[in-house]
Amino acid sequence: MAGYDATVKILPHSGFLDLRGNAVVRQICSDVLGLSLPAAANQLKTATDGRIVYCISNDHWILQIVDGRQNDVLRTLEQAAVGLSHSFVDVSDMYIQIRLSGPESQEVLSQAVSIDIHPRVFPPGATARAGFAETTAQLHCVDDAPTFIVTVYSSYRQYAIDLLNTAIGAA
């Protein structure tokens, strides 16, 4: 049986830090990371070294670190934020990432996601945290293949993969 023209791949583990704090904390983190934390939900900023920061709400960010140095980053951030109300938590194992790519990946993803992911409103660089079938995902469109990175809770790893493969409809 044929299927939609799209492929699913599990990405290697990344580091993730969950960052909470007010505008002052946001500024300090931006300075320390050399990466400006967006102020509004469902925006992201990418740094040249591959770090990505996703804004979840106006006092909540998730920082993705790809070089495995999340503990160092966490320590540096903690030092910078001493005395300020904040919460920085290592959540590297909370999430796993799936890469969905191919000309029909939008058709596949829209079987599980109710938000609008049409390229007009969800072009490369767009992100959103939204319902993903029976769980939640951070969605990130990275190119106009199109390719979507779907970040889900790690206990839902198998569920998310099975779901996407079923949606693709390959035999």
């Binding site: 079987q111 029976e134 769980t135 206990s155 839902y156 198998q158 569920y159 779901l163 079923t166 949606a167």
Partner: peptide
């Protein structure tokens, strides 16, 4: 009901 792989409507979370 939509697409079903036996696990669609109730996810199985795994440790």
């Amino acid at each position: 009901a939509g697409a079903d792989n036996g696990h669609s409507i109730i996810p199985w979370r795994r440790t």
